[in-house]
């Protein structure tokens, strides 16, 4: 079991918002400058700490969506209705604002760029964020299946199309829409089912590794379906998030 190391000394580091990008009506990418940041392994996350003027603090974890690199990283945040931290990050923070981060964290839901095995990445909603980092860093065959309610709910639409084009056949992106399909789409909206998974899954003898990230119900369903269609359970890694009031 390959693990990514968590740095031995984990300290809070100041991060400065360098830029923001709207991804959808309710999700935004924050580009963060962090002096001395040495990069991450795709799939890892950071803890974010926000401190109010009276010293009150709030903490959340966010996946890193950018490719690994020094001194800068990107997190993509979905605003949770009535949340405490995510509405601030999506609607209030502007370039120049500062917060604190600690990381990179997580030694299991990671894909090392050097891992030669083909990967099947399956994301639901904003669960695509850590998978976006894997796509951006991919040097080996990678298929992404991305499920959202509608095209307007999908994050990274342009970036995923660009990654597929630049991937020269190495990267394949498939969208699944559960409520509203794009105009002119040959396929009606549908839930992700065994058929849809079987169409993108690697052959059983490919020794593929699957990464599944999304809301709990989505991850449970997809992981069970993968086992049903013959994927080795020990090669399925999951990351889940619930509606935790983030």
């Amino acid at each position: 079991m390959a693990r990514a190391a968590i740095p031995v000394r984990l300290t809070w580091q100041p991060a400065t918002v360098a830029a923001t990008r709207a991804e959808t009506a309710t999700a935004r990418t924050l580009v963060l400058d962090v002096d001395g940041w040495t990069g991450h392994v795709p799939g890892q996350h950071v803890d974010v700490r926000l401190t109010a003027p009276d010293g009150y603090t709030a903490y959340r974890s966010y996946s890193i969506a950018s490719a690994p690199g020094p001194d800068r990283l990107e997190v993509t945040v979905q605003a949770v209705p009535d949340g405490e931290v995510s509405p601030y990050l999506v609607d209030v923070a502007e370039p120049g604002d500062q917060l604190e981060i600690r990381g990179p964290l997580g030694g299991w839901f990671v894909r090392r760029p050097a891992d030669p095995r083909p990967a099947l990445l399956i994301g639901g909603g904003s669960g695509v964020a850590p998978l976006m980092s894997m796509v951006r860093a991919a040097t080996n065959p990678t298929r992404l299946l991305y499920s959202t309610r509608s095209p307007s709910d999908a994050l990274f639409t342009a970036d995923l199309a660009a990654a597929q084009t630049a991937g020269d056949g190495r990267i394949a992106v498939t969208h699944v829409y559960t409520r509203v399909a794009p105009p002119g789409s040959p396929a009606p909206p549908r839930r992700l089912d065994a058929d849809a998974l079987a169409r993108v899954a690697w052959p059983r003898d490919a020794d593929a590794v699957a990464f599944v990230c999304g809301p709990t119900g989505f991850v449970e369903t997809v992981a069970d379906l993968l086992v049903d269609i013959g994927h080795d359970p020990t090669n399925i890694r999951t990351e889940r998030f619930g509606p935790t009031g983030g």
């Binding site: 926000l50 010293g55 009150y56 601030y88 604002d97 500062q98 604190e100």
Partner: peptide, 12 residues
Amino acid sequence: MALITRGFGGRR
């Protein structure tokens, strides 16, 4: 003292 994040109020 932690760094203050501008515009963050939080919910106590």
